[in-house]
């Protein structure tokens, strides 16, 4: 290991943490943005995420290929998403409640079938060494960027652009804002929502695959600490904007690194409060940027949670 980096460890940890920890949040919140923009809310992505983590790990253990693991996770996520989308198209079925039940179902299945994969080690997804220019190993480690993070960053820009400029983006937005308007345009809102929820599920499962195949990079029943649920909440925080999701995920990841890194440089009192930083910060920003005048700008009109 290299020499002392002292207090520089804190900003470095925040940068490194933002890159390492944010990826699951990015994927789940981007997926949920697509779903919610279409007028549905899928609160069950936590279950999809955990099931995706298990599937990716299990397939990677069995085949030795992380990419096959990732693919299997995405497929499982699509199944969960389509199931949610299909069941919620029936009248009077509450999408939030189904989401909560799906959360139990997904986690339960993941734990049930994941038992044999707790012991074996799976290969890890590759990372790109963006820190090659530095001679400091800590900087090199912090800048080891996983490909999924880069894909997530690219996707958030792409989605932001696509919502504004493509026909598919327009269709999703119209369906999300008014089912009646969509029908008038000859669009079947339920089909659009079905697809949007399916894609959302695939994204969430990929977020889970990142947890099990890269960071922290192992499978056990405690692998997720509620990232899936938190990411769904971050979508509201990001006001259904893909770029906002990316920023919120970075903020969350970076702020989460504050607690451990402060202890490592000797700030040892009150660590529970430091660990609460991501939540306090998010809440503070929400309070500061909301106002009753322009309530929930960007909120899809059909969304049950904001009606």
């Amino acid at each position: 290991m290299a020499g002392e980096i002292g207090l520089w460890g804190v900003p470095l940890a925040i940068l490194g943490g933002a890159i390492r920890v944010s990826t699951p949040f990015i994927f789940v919140s981007l997926g949920e943005t697509i779903t919610e923009r279409s007028g549905r809310i899928n609160l069950g992505l936590e279950g999809t995420l955990v099931f995706g983590a298990m599937t990716a790990y299990g397939v990677a253990v069995e085949t030795g290929s992380t990419w096959l693991g990732l693919l299997a996770a995405a497929l499982s996520g699509i199944c969960f998403g389509l199931f949610h989308g299909w069941i919620c198209k029936f009248p009077k079925v509450n999408d939030i409640a189904i989401g909560i039940a799906m959360m139990l179902f997904g986690t339960g299945l993941a734990f049930f079938f994941g038992k044999p994969f707790i012991k074996p080690s799976a290969p890890h997804l590759p990372a790109i060494a963006f820190g090659f220019w530095s001679t400091i190993p800590q900087v090199q480690a912090a800048l080891d960027v996983n490909v999924l993070f880069l894909i997530g960053a690219a996707l958030s820009v792409l989605l932001w652009w696509a919502f504004k400029n493509t026909r598919a983006g327009l269709i999703i937005r119209v369906v999300g804002d008014s089912s009646d308007a969509a029908r008038a345009m000859g669009i079947n809102p339920n089909s659009v929502r079905l697809l949007a929820t399916g894609v959302g599920g695939a994204f969430a499962a990929i977020g889970g695959a990142y947890l099990s195949l890269y960071y922290p990079g192992s499978w056990n029943e405690r692998i997720s600490s509620g990232q899936g649920l938190m990411a769904v909440a971050l979508v509201i925080f990001a006001r259904w904007n893909p770029l906002g999701c990316f920023a919120a995920a970075l903020l969350f990841g970076g702020a989460g690194a504050l607690g451990p890194s402060l202890q490592s440089v000797g700030v040892t009192q009150g660590y529970y409060l430091f660990y609460a930083t991501p939540y306090v910060l998010t809440l503070a920003i929400m309070i500061a940027t909301s106002s009753p005048g322009r309530s929930l700008a960007g909120a899809p009109g059909e969304l049950s949670i904001t009606k």
């Binding site: 480690a141 922290p216 405690r222 692998i223 989460g256 607690g259």
Partner: peptide, 11 residues
């Protein structure tokens, strides 16, 4: 708490 344990190890 998997992710926090990993972050602590890195720190």
């Amino acid at each position: 708490l998997a992710v926090k344990e990993a972050e602590a190890t890195n720190a």
